[in-house]
Design a protein around this nucleic acid. Sequence first.
DNA 1: TCTAATAGTTACAAAAAGCAACTAATTTTG
DNA 2: CAAAATTAGTTGCTTTTTGTAACTATTAGA
Lengths: 173, 173
Amino acid sequence: MSNHQFESKEVPADSNSDLGGFDIEQALGFVVNRAAIVMRMRLTENFRAAGYEMSTEEFVILARLWDKDGMFQSEIVEQTLKDKTRVTRLLGSLIMRSWIEKKTDEHDRRNFRVYLTEEGRALKPILLPLVVSVIAAGSAGIPRSDLDTTVRTLRRVFENLSGAIDIKGEAKP
Amino acid sequence: MSNHQFESKEVPADSNSDLGGFDIEQALGFVVNRAAIVMRMRLTENFRAAGYEMSTEEFVILARLWDKDGMFQSEIVEQTLKDKTRVTRLLGSLIMRSWIEKKTDEHDRRNFRVYLTEEGRALKPILLPLVVSVIAAGSAGIPRSDLDTTVRTLRRVFENLSGAIDIKGEAKP
DNA sequence: TCTAATAGTTACAAAAAGCAACTAATTTTG
DNA sequence: CAAAATTAGTTGCTTTTTGTAACTATTAGA
């Protein structure tokens, strides 16, 4: 395994070097997390500026539905890595704003299917440009190929790590 | 488990294509966020399994101090993108576990300097391997050069976006 | 049928965030 | 130099967000 975080580019600056020159500023987990924080901040800020008080989590659900309307609630639970209680509440808040609605699936009445309302669908051309502009601002000056590599790499990181995670509300054997 | 018998793509991928084929699964913001979530989950899980109930935020502060002991509290506020109230409380919880201590800076008695205790220093060889193992697991099968590109790219994304963010408790002109 | 498993909700407790007001120490400024 | 402003940080209080466990309803199984 290529532990690139152990790469001693500038070995000094580590008085108690019982562990090699681990540089948090170069650690994958650290840069991923920090980029995520700042992108979320900017996005929420943009939404608010446009008059939409919406979390990124709510946005992600809407975006999923724009792509595939009528998802099962349980699919949303899986895809968002959240537990079912949180999804119930997140959907509730989207319903309150009448952007989505839930309908019992008649083939299996335990399931809900989640549908966009006309209003919810109408948000796409409003919100998507805000997202695109954050991504564009973040990507400024970065070669397209590097961005592609980054997306591909992070997808792989997710795949590598998502297996063993156990989310409450789901039974993972 | 996806036992949805009706998982057919009833909606032909982007039916209302008023906006080009925006694919959330390929969007930088989305993959960054998702990778961050799963890495945080795994890390917290690892910490807990090792007997340490610690958030990634607390960990990041410790890691900063391992690298540079005696930081100003205000530096931590800046570097962690958190507001000063949260940092006060985060440090408080680290102090309660006697991993760090605060000392008034005698040159400017408004400032605190934050120091690791012996115990806090001793955590490094225990916790760092846990972090490294999450990164290694996440990086499995990914070429080193792609990882390097990803780290470089995300650092740039952060730089690009960090400017205009206004964090409570700090005055940003 | 009786039992188990799924899908989802609810109610209540605990933790985290946000906000505003408040010390205390230092600078600025008139 | 005194008054005012700034900076660093804390505290108390409120609101939001989570976490947990128990509970309903529906379907699947032996």
